[in-house]
Amino acid sequence: MNQRKPAIVAEHLTRRFGTFLAVDRVSFRVYEGEIFGFLGANGAGKTTVIRMLCGLLAPSDGNAWTAGFNVRTQVEQIKQHIGYMSQKFSLYEDLTVRENLAFYGGLYHLRRDQIQQKKQQLFQQLELAAFETTLARDLPLGFKQRLALSCALLHDPPVLFLDEPTSGVDPRARRDFWGLIQSLARSGKTIFVTTHFMEEAEYCHRVAIMHEGKIVAMDTPETLKARSRKSSMQQVFVSLIQQQLTES
């Protein structure tokens, strides 16, 4: 985080659905190597922001760049430069670990030797080698999660989006997963993550809290806790949103 080079830039990013304002002039920057947590109630607009940053949904107004590419005009390049993993891991349950990786490698137009090389590296990093010929559906949940992460990392994207990546896994698998995420960030990857586990927000370098389409707070977890005099992000979140609700 020393050189502070932005990996994601959003400027007055806005999205309407009919008369409903889902995202309302949201601006922020996420820097290379940063773990950025994106928090908010269900329906606050988080998913709409992510879909715009991934080039899946055009903004109604404002602009954004992901990995240096414009979300309006360079959608194809964005897809090649981001990884995406969601709580509902999109894995092929009837394919083995190896076959899932080969399939995703094909999607990203990787050559066989590239897939092979990347696979070795990921297997080592994520300790998946023992499961190479296991069907995805037979994997323990924690390892399913690692396989989903491997598929999202296969094409070596500089920016990684994680949408509630640890729902349901046991606490040890969750810790291990965050250890991996931290080492990915140390290697320079930018991580954009949404979660409802407020403890996880504390793993992030910075967090933004969204409410009704707007960012209502954005800072390091430490600063947010100090400012609202709370000891946990759980309390920070609840008090911030309650404050918003009384003001509106």
């Binding site: 908010g40 109630a41 269900n42 606050a44 709580q87 509630e164 729902s167 349901g168 409802h196 407020m198 759980q234 979140f237 609840v238 949103i241 309650q242």
Partner: peptide
Amino acid sequence: TTGVDPLSRQ
């Protein structure tokens, strides 16, 4: 409360 935000959970 799975997948529900912290305030609604409370």
